[in-house]
């Protein structure tokens, strides 16, 4: 009996403690970001943390569409970095944003492979029968998947390739399908292909950006973070030289910069 009572008390203490946890003195910030910016964002957040050592900063990566849905349902996120600016703009229209949507980068899609020399590849090569599986992100809700579909449609390959295309839930899973060897080629974000791990494993071919709509990426401070000074600080940090240098290194074209 004694044991059970102790267990119940302990459970209660844990529950109560976890409910009142955010009352700490230091600031807290939860960032959600599209999977394509993961590696750049990891570095940016690390730099930001150096300037804010006492604050608790969390980052979650996933598909832009998923976070869009979750924020509408009241998810406790402070900053939302989408791979498609249309998503945060939609939230802004619904009054779920604390300010205007800010563009932060333009992304690019590439052909990437670790079993073939993708640098010598073009979209037409995807029709090669020895390529059995091509990974793309889900074109219904992942922006990089939408652009991949548009590019394949532009060159008339979308329908012929249907039997080969497999879909990742987000762009990171798409890259992982290729990395594990389960698909020979993937259409992924340039930013992922430039990440050291993937860059060492394989090469990429930049897909002509006239074949698809631009991958304009935008972010918002969510309504719930309107009074969170840390959210505003991070938004400003994104515009600073340190963050811009990192974003450029990962192949993003930044606002106010001419496309190459």
């Amino acid at each position: 009996m004694q044991g059970i009572r102790r267990l119940l008390v302990a459970t209660l203490v844990i529950l109560v403690a976890s409910l009142s946890a955010p009352a700490a003195l230091a600031g807290s910030l939860t960032i959600v970001a599209a999977a394509d910016v993961k590696f750049a964002m990891d570095e940016i957040v690390a730099a930001f943390r150096e300037a804010h050592p006492d604050d608790r900063i969390r980052v979650i990566y996933g598909s832009s569409g998923k976070f869009h849905t979750q924020i509408q349902q009241g998810a406790p996120f402070d900053l939302y970095f989408s791979a498609d600016i249309a998503f945060p703009r939609g939230l802004e229209e619904k009054g779920l944003s604390a300010g205007p949507t800010r563009p932060y980068a333009v992304g690019r899609i590439v052909l990437w492979s670790n079993v073939r020399d993708a640098t010598q590849m073009t979209l037409q090569d995807l029709a090669d029968p020895t390529i059995r599986k091509i990974a793309i992100a889900n074109p219904r809700h992942a922006p990089y998947g939408m652009r991949a579909e548009e590019a394949l449609r532009s060159v008339g390959l979308w329908d012929p390739l249907q039997g080969k295309i497999v879909q990742g839930e987000n762009i990171a899973q798409t890259a992982q399908f290729v990395q594990t060897g389960n698909a020979e080629v993937g259409i992924i974000a340039l930013a992922l292909a430039l990440n050291p791990t993937l860059a060492e494993a394989g090469g990429y071919h930049l897909i002509d950006d006239s074949l698809h709509e631009p991958l304009e990426q935008g972010f918002i401070i969510t309504q719930r973070a309107a009074n969170n000074p840390l959210a505003a600080a991070f938004a400003d940090f994104m515009d600073g030289p340190a963050a811009r240098e990192i974003m450029i290194r990962y192949g993003f074209i930044l606002p106010g910069e001419a496309a190459q």
Partner: peptide, 13 residues
């Protein structure tokens, strides 16, 4: 499968 189709529908609103 159905469970994945549901997930997709929710993601696509």
């Amino acid at each position: 499968v159905v469970s994945v189709a549901i997930y997709d529908h929710v993601e696509a609103l």
